[in-house]
């Protein structure tokens, strides 16, 4: 993380008019210019007719399609269906991934017993597993949730495992010197050390869970946002087909922010360091 030191005068000014002053920061205005520039160019291409609504669509049309799907209730119905798979998938993947990662990190025997499978699965494109999963678990809730689990669990396992492995050996020795029990060692040392790894893992997991959800909805029984998008794209209504994609993008950003929020809550000692 970079911390920029600002001259005192500028810092004072910022207090007086925070909104205005923040516009002067490159972080804000470079991003704004870039965002509006790209959207504007895309829009212009649409207006000049180079991009047609039936092939790729453009921002203003997508925005109005987004609103119409939102108000007709279609978007929310689809989102509700999707959120069930996503929620169930994450609710299984996160605790299971944490437990597997912890045991792998702390027990050699367990690690050797499962690491071949974990790394094999990590290297496998999960999409390819959709059909075997569908054969075993069906194309409905169970099958789709399982796909989300497979997508989301890997970064959790791997990161938690690395977190446990990278616990400071000197501090491990301190806990031993003071005759800590194994449970106390987890409480005082191992859990706090894996928080940053876990947070990074959860960030990746939430992104991959969204991908898994859409994949499941494309490939298995028709439902949710993935199906909504595919249906309209099949009808060549690109604007309505892309509106659910925008919705997913927003959900993805919100999930990332949520993870960041938890990180700042749990790792206040690190936030202070970097200030």
């Amino acid at each position: 993380m970079t911390t920029e030191t600002k001259p005192l005068a500028e810092a004072k000014e910022q207090k007086a008019a925070p909104m205005l002053a923040s516009l002067r920061e490159p972080r804000v205005y470079v991003r704004a210019v870039s965002l509006f520039g790209v959207l504007g160019a895309w829009e212009a291409l649409g207006w000049t007719g180079i991009i047609k609504p039936s092939t790729f669509s453009y921002p203003s049309v997508i925005a109005s399609a987004f609103l119409s799907l939102l108000f007709s209730g279609e978007m929310m119905k689809a989102a509700y269906q999707s959120s069930q798979i996503l929620g169930a998938g994450l609710a299984i993947a996160i605790p299971l991934g944490i437990a597997l990662g912890m045991f792998m990190g702390r027990s050699r025997t367990f690690e050797y017993a499962v690491d071949t499978f974990v790394y094999a699965l990590y290297a496998t494109p999960v999409v390819a597993l959709a059909f075997p999963i569908a054969m075993v678990l069906g194309v409905d809730f169970a099958g789709k949730t399982t796909i989300v689990v497979f997508f989301a669990i890997m970064p959790v396992i791997i990161n938690v495992y690395h977190g446990v492995r990278n616990v400071d050996p000197m501090l491990l020795e301190v806990t031993r010197s003071f005759c800590s029990s194994e449970w106390q060692r987890w409480r005082d040392l191992i859990f706090p050390s894996i928080v940053p790894y876990l947070v990074a893992g959860l960030g990746m997991a939430s992104g991959r869970a969204l991908v898994g959800m859409v994949v499941a909805e494309f490939l298995m029984s028709i439902s949710g946002l993935g199906a909504l998008s595919q249906d309209y794209i099949g009808n060549l209504e690109m604007d309505k087909g892309l509106a659910p994609v925008v919705f997913l993008m927003i959900v993805g950003i919100l999930l990332t922010k949520l993870v960041d929020f938890f990180e700042s809550r749990f790792a206040s000692w690190r936030a202070r360091n970097e200030r």
Binding site: M170, E173, S177, W269
Partner: peptide, 14 residues
């Protein structure tokens, strides 16, 4: 027995 470590050995989050 209690040890005073050369590397201090404090927990950064405590």
């Amino acid at each position: 027995m209690a040890m005073v470590f050369q590397h201090f050995g404090l927990f950064p989050w405590k």
